[in-house]
Design a binder for these strands. Structure first.
Lengths: 338, 338
DNA sequence: CTGAAAGCGCTTACAG
DNA sequence: CTGAAAGCGCTTACAG
């Protein structure tokens, strides 16, 4: 039961291998009856084209790189699933690559990856999608790529994102709407463009409702649990502490929750806590987190789709914005008497 | 700056391409001076061999499949990182494949994957590593594979695991040691061989300390948070409730923690809770979880290493057991007066 | 220790 | 609409 080749199929269908190739690649100008005959032979022989032969003859690798340095396993898995789903439809393979922020410089790292694997293109997740250095290195190699949630840097490559500013504004307005005036905010990792946008959304909501912006209510975090815990303690130790804290992601919000627990502050009676991402952690902490859902899978699927298009028509200049959604759970509510 | 080929290197080094090939594949019987000349040319030209040409000529794909159906993103990422690290060293590519348990049958799913991608071999994660059906399908195709944490099914393929029985016994004995006698247990997903082993360890510890095994203290969970929450409530609603609960993984232990919170039972003063895995969640819940660390990355690295060996010498029959480690945190302690 | 030839299974470029 | 030839960049099998 050695592997069937295109020659076997051609023989079985009584055509030339070139015709089999045409059918398999959905090229036009094949007579319907011929196409059917070929497909029947493909099916009968359980034929599957050789990945390496197609790549070698076609002068491309059919390999797409998905690069990330995000510490959140859930985010990475969502993105990976989305990108993989699209790759599979097109018989591309996905190469995952984890970048070490503190390792060698990005350009060398990704450049090396591209050299070694002969990648056809890349999908860049944040914060790599905003790295000038990396983008310059890819441009130099003329490697096509698509960016997920990048900054506003002008570049011809397509991108996908979510309106982080609007999402954060909406969440903040929700907190205002249930009666909060002293609202703390924890900024995400400053290397992520989204971090700044979320902060802007928070500020915009305060302004819109005539609430004074207070610098001491805003702490710098890094999208990880520990930074939420630490910032949470700082905010909750204040004499006039916030009655609500909006953390820029769920991991940090979980940290705030723990800080509150450790201080005997009950949530949401004495403190409302909101996060961002709707990661699994949001449903695992107690109380469950109010947060913002963003469709990471869809963003990645779409980004990969755009990359595949880009490989066909290098002039593609496109971007797609996806919808977010507020998810209200038990960690937020009006203030109640102690 | 078109891609350099083996011909370019051969020309630059003044040898035949076959000699370049020998050097690149670390074949013996190459004069040192020749080897050096070739390596210098490789470096000077920044040459990287073509993945697809090697695969096509070598009659193999250099593709390894990593299949999983585990819902835990962290576990999957750890395993993926370990497998990927080993693959990269050997210029193999890793293909991730998520199996839908409730989708088409496993054999068809993975068989299709193997057919389409022409995989050289697979790494099977639990519970797939114990699937008779899947293993039969792979044997039929003569596809080499290595199993992670499989059951005791007799099979020539190599495997790696951890002594789950001993680990669970040790954790249970730790709970007994700090004074607990009424110890609840939540079983993991029954499709995982480890689930049964951990239950056995729990029972063995009770026996060893002359504590009666009580069926009503043992609940069936599925390795997911919700099942821990539910089982936790059942256990804590009992008139003579356990003073400690050992859940077979951290997600379920987090569920128990939430059940305790909802019932106003304080941990660890009134209830000790222990988990298994040392997943990130263990440090994010409150209080932080006492748990068992198991080196998922190392298991996967080693499994991949064994698969690579297996591809060279098909007779390899080997298995490696890795060490676990108890991690004591704040969720366990002696009972204290209310 | 080294090399010349053939071939892996496709696609490209061209012809009809 | 279809096909014959050449070639992608390596490894295999063989020779010396």
């Amino acid at each position: 039961m050695s592997r069937k080749t295109i020659t076997d199929v051609a023989a079985a269908a009584g055509v030339a291998i070139k015709t089999v190739s045409r059918v398999l690649n959905n090229e036009p100008k094949v007579r319907d009856s011929t196409r059917e005959r070929v497909m029947a032979a493909v099916k009968a022989l359980n034929y599957h084209p050789s990945f390496s032969a197609r790549a070698l003859a076609g002068r491309r690798s059919f390999l797409i790189g998905l690069v990330y340095e995000n510490p959140s396993a859930n985010y990475v898995m969502d993105v990976q699933s989305g990108a993989m789903a699209r790759c599979r439809e097109e018989r591309f393979q996905l190469i995952m690559h984890h970048c070490n922020v503190r390792g060698a410089d990005l350009a060398t790292d990704i450049g090396g990856l591209a050299d070694q694997t002969h990648l056809d293109g890349l999908v860049l997740t944040p914060p790599l999608s905003s790295s000038k250095e990396l983008i310059a290195a890819l441009d130099e190699r003329e490697l096509p790529f698509v960016r997920i949630a990048p900054n506003r840097m002008r570049h011809a490559s397509p991108f996908v994102d979510v309106d982080d500013q609007a999402a954060a504004r909406e969440m903040t307005e929700y907190l205002v709407g249930i009666g909060h005036r002293r609202i703390g905010f924890i900024i995400g990792n400053p290397e992520h463009y989204a971090s700044g946008r979320r902060l802007e959304g928070y500020k915009a909501a305060l302004k819109r409702h005539g609430i004074e912006y207070r610098d001491e209510y805003v702490k710098q975090g890094f999208f990880i649990f520990e930074s939420g815990l630490e910032s949470g303690h700082e905010l909750l130790a204040m004499p006039e502490r916030p009655t609500a804290i909006f953390a820029s992601n769920d991991d940090m919000a979980a940290g705030v929750l723990m800080a509150a627990h450790q201080r005997g502050i009950s949530v949401p009676a004495q403190l409302s806590v909101a996060g961002f991402d709707d990661a699994p952690i949001a449903r695992i902490v107690w109380p469950r987190l109010t947060t913002v859902f963003q469709p990471a899978y869809d963003l990645a699927y779409s980004a990969t789709d755009m990359l595949l298009e880009l490989l066909k028509s290098p002039k593609l200049d496109k971007s797609v914005q996806f919808d977010y959604r507020l998810v209200c759970r038990a960690s937020t509510g009006p203030l109640r008497a102690a």
